[in-house]
Nucleic acid binder design. Structure first.
Lengths: 108, 108
DNA sequence: GCCGCTATTGCGCTATGCGTAGTACTGTGC
DNA sequence: GCACAGTACTACGCATAGCGCAATAGCGGC
């Protein structure tokens, strides 16, 4: 849980944040992240993150059939996920503030 | 130069920011980063980052003898480094703003 | 039947940050 | 004079994350 996790683990946070809004499936998570501004996220990264979070016990999962294509594997937050989201969000905020401080001194 | 670099490459930015203030050597960079709030940075990571940035042509380097220990390898920004700092800082700001937006929606 | 869109999985690559160990120089205390 | 702590750097190997790419598969339109 040190901030080093944050250095690479921002995707986890982003994915959790998206799922907090509502349950979603991989393809849709990718779309929503890109719409939110993370245009460079690879689909494989998101699928990997979802599987990792699920394996870590932070997500629920259920499959839903679709009329417009193959089945969709929905993911949703459970209590563990919500806790992780809250704690990661806090860590992120602190880290971002630290970085902003560091960069702010450039102008002075 | 996509934002994916940022996901892991924040250390580069932090190191460049510290060096922008004044020339410095590895051991000192570590100290200053920790004082700035990045308490968990490993020394090996910083040394590695410095060597990588130097190899990439973003830093100058010169050795200075010291009275209080072994020699110090000082690093300083050159034009390439300053350009990289500026561009990374911009990318970081955009990325951080995006993440903050994503997280802000949690409360609504 | 083929193409494009939706949707997921698997494999291998690379870079990064980290831990640990090792080298080496200085000043202090015994 | 030597062990030791603090300073300063290097080298080796590890784990992991995100990425690119290919494969699979269902659907609708031409």
């Amino acid at each position: 849980m040190d901030s080093s996790q944050l250095l690479k683990g921002v995707l986890d946070l982003a994915v959790l944040a998206v799922l907090a809004d509502r349950d979603s499936y991989g393809y849709d998570v990718v779309r929503r992240l890109r719409e939110a501004g993370l245009e460079d996220v690879g689909d494989a990264s998101v699928y990997g993150t979802l599987r990792r979070l699920f394996k870590a016990g932070a997500l629920t999962s259920y499959v839903v059939a679709s009329d417009e294509g193959p089945h969709r594997k929905y993911y949703g937050l459970n209590d563990v996920g919500r806790a992780q989201l809250a704690s990661s969000a806090t860590t992120w905020a602190a880290f971002a503030a630290t970085m902003d401080d560091l960069l702010k001194e450039l102008s002075t």
